[in-house]
Amino acid sequence: MADVAEIAHEEIEDVEFPDDSHATSTGISNPKLAMWVYLASDALLFGGLISTYLIYKNRPGEIPGLSGSPVRISELFDIPFTSMTTFILLMSSLTMVMSVTSAMRNDQVRMRLWLGTTALLGALFLGGQIYEFTVFVSEGLGYTSNVSSSAFYTLTGFHGVHVAVGILMLVAMLGMSLRQRIHAEAVEVIGLYWHFVDIVWVVIFTIVYLIP
């Protein structure tokens, strides 16, 4: 918020009024700004979930005599497999960005192509995550087995839901692009969401999977 004050002071110095009557006061369009504000807010949501996992990840091993399964969820991780899905999600960020540039060039065909690819890659990632979950459950560590598994499933589940929502939006955008022209900015705004989901995975993959 201190930032806001600075902005305020900067603005007071020279205010010009754009003749372009569509201009917003900050020059950023409403949807884009709203998406950024939402993403900043979402950062606190994932922050809370990641902290929960970090606090609980070693609980079954550290404190003897607790009820529930003594296995930590991290003992079941299959890093090579998860790395694959991580690469897939990373690739989807690239295709998303290509979709945005296509849209900005008003190349609707390429835009659709890249949107479709992004959704597909997202779906692959989600499929990988679901597969991973089923493996963990079959190994005997379900959602309610112990605190580390509950925290893990909640964190990755929330991320998965975000991915799923992103896929829905991409597909909806794809569908709508067949019916009407899509503004590049609409694609960009969804792209912001998609990249954020990827960013969150970057953090989750490092902190949850790779750091022992």
Binding site: K32, L33, W36, A40, S93, L94, H195, I199
Partner: peptide, 23 residues
């Protein structure tokens, strides 16, 4: 990713500040 794919480096300082503030 944030800087290039999400254009944070090129976008208005306001969005950068909003997002960084949240982080």
């Amino acid at each position: 990713i944030a800087g290039f794919f999400m254009h944070l480096r090129f976008d208005s300082a306001l969005v950068r500040r909003v997002f960084i503030f949240g982080l």
